[in-house]
C-alpha cells in the first residue's frame, strides 16, 4: 500500500508536464485561435454540394437536370426544374436547382450518383446566416461555381474528373468518325438508306477490351448512339420517311408480343433519340415500330443511366421481361412511366 496521496501527486506531475510542455512543444499545445487563425481544410474535406460549370455559367453548366441526385438524396434536400425553350420543349439544363443546406447533411451521395460530374462537394463552412429560411436555401446562381474553383479545392480529384470527361469526349468522336462518314448527316435528303445502317450498330462501337465497367459502357453506348445519328427534327425525320415504310409492314405483320425478340433493335435508326423532342413527337416517330422501339421512344432520351441502363438497354430489358419495374426513368417522370405502362398493357404484358 503506497502512501495516501502519491497517486494524486503523480497525476499532478502529468498536468505539470503538459502545462510546461505547452510552452515548448507544438504537440502539447494544439489550440488554434479561430477566427483569427484558421486551419487549411484537408483536400478530402467536404461540406455542402455545389454545381460545376465549364467556362460559361449559362452554357457550360454540366447539369442536365436528369434529377438523379434529387431522387437519391437521403434527406431529399434538392429541388430541380428542367429548362424549357420558347416553344415549350425541354432543354437539358436546370431552370431551378435549389439545395436547402439547412436540411443537407453533406453525405456526398449526390456526387457519387451523378453521371455527368456536375455536382461536387464544396469546402466553404462559414454559412451562418441571420435569415434562417431563405438565407440557407441556395439557388442555382449561388450554387454555380467554375471548374477552376473545383480544381482549387480538390486538385487531385478534379484532375481525375477532367481526364475522365476528356476521354469521354474523345472516344465517341474517334469511334463515331467511320460510322458517321457514310451517313452524311449534314445532307438529310441524300442517301437515306445507309444512315440507318450506320446508326444501327451503336452498341458494338466500343471495343470489348476498352477499360470501362458495365455502367460506363452502358452510358457510353447510349452517348455514342445519340451522336452517330443526325440530331434535329428535319434531319432525323428524313430517313424515317423513306426507310421506315419498308420495315413498318413487317413489324406490323408480326404479332406485337413476338416483335421485340425477332426485330433487331435500332433497325431504321432511332430518330426519337433526341431529348429536345416532346413525348408525343417521339411516340409519333416510333409509330409502327416494334415494342422495344416504342418503349425507348417513351424514355427521356438522356441516357443518364438513372434506371441502371441506357435508354435502349432499359427498353430492351422491359420488352424482354427482365426488368419488371416500369417506373425507373427518373428524368421522364410520370408521363414516361404512364406511357410505358400503357404500351405494356397494349402489348398484353403488364
Amino acid at each position: 500500500m503506497s502512501l495516501l496521496g502519491t497517486g494524486i501527486l503523480k497525476g499532478m506531475a502529468v498536468t505539470a508536464k503538459n502545462f510546461v510542455g505547452s510552452y515548448v512543444s507544438e504537440e502539447r499545445l494544439t489550440t488554434v485561435q479561430y477566427p483569427e487563425e484558421k486551419l487549411k481544410p484537408q483536400e478530402a474535406f467536404r461540406n455542402f454540394p455545389f454545381l460545376v460549370f465549364d467556362d460559361d455559367p449559362d452554357k457550360g453548366i454540366r447539369c442536365v437536370a436528369c434529377k438523379i441526385c434529387e431522387d437519391e438524396c437521403p434527406p431529399q434536400c434538392i429541388y430541380i426544374e428542367r429548362e424549357t425553350d420558347a416553344s415549350g420543349k425541354p432543354v437539358p439544363r436546370p431552370k431551378k436547382f435549389d439545395i436547402d443546406v439547412s436540411v443537407c447533411m453533406g453525405c456526398q451521395i449526390c456526387v457519387e450518383v451523378c453521371p455527368f460530374e456536375a455536382i461536387k462537394m464544396d469546402q466553404e463552412y462559414e454559412y451562418s446566416n441571420a435569415d434562417r429560411f431563405y438565407g440557407l436555401l441556395h439557388d442555382k446562381n449561388k450554387l454555380l461555381k467554375p471548374n477552376e474553383y473545383y480544381h482549387k479545392i480538390h486538385p487531385k480529384e478534379a484532375a481525375e474528373v477532367d481526364a475522365k470527361l476528356a476521354a469521354k469526349k474523345k472516344k465517341p468522336a474517334a469511334a463515331a468518325k467511320p460510322a458517321a462518314k457514310p451517313a452524311e448527316a449534314k445532307k438529310p435528303a441524300a442517301a437515306p438508306a445507309p444512315a440507318p445502317a450506320a446508326a444501327a450498330k451503336p452498341k458494338i462501337v466500343i471495343p470489348e477490351d476498352a477499360p470501362f465497367n458495365a455502367e460506363q459502357r452502358a452510358w457510353l453506348s447510349g452517348f455514342l448512339s445519340s451522336i452517330t445519328q443526325p440530331i434535329g427534327g428535319p434531319a432525323a425525320t428524313a430517313p424515317v420517311g423513306s426507310a421506315a415504310p419498308a420495315e413498318a409492314p413487317a413489324a406490323e405483320a408480326a404479332p406485337a408480343t413476338e416483335a421485340p425478340a425477332e426485330a433487331p433493335p435500332a433497325e431504321g435508326g432511332e430518330p426519337w433519340h433526341d431529348q429536345s423532342l416532346s413525348l408525343e413527337e417521339r411516340m409519333k416517330l416510333a409509330q409502327g415500330r416494334p415494342l422495344e422501339d416504342k418503349l425507348m421512344a417513351a424514355m427521356a432520351q438522356l441516357d443518364c443511366g438513372a434506371c441502371g441502363y441506357d435508354c435502349r438497354g432499359y427498353s430492351a430489358a422491359i420488352a424482354s421481361g427482365q426488368e419488371k419495374d416500369l417506373t425507373l426513368c427518373a428524368p421522364g417522370e410520370k408521363p414516361t412511366a404512364d406511357k410505358v405502362v400503357e404500351l405494356m398493357n397494349a402489348a398484353g404484358k403488364a
Binding site: 495516501l4 502519491t6 494524486i8 503523480k10 497525476g11 506531475a13 502529468v14
Partner: peptide
C-alpha cells in the same frame, strides 16, 4: 501511459 499515470492511481478516483 501518461493518461494512466494521471488517473489510475489517483486516490479520489479509486
Amino acid at each position: 501511459d501518461e493518461f494512466e499515470q494521471l488517473l489510475t492511481g489517483n486516490e479520489i478516483l479509486l
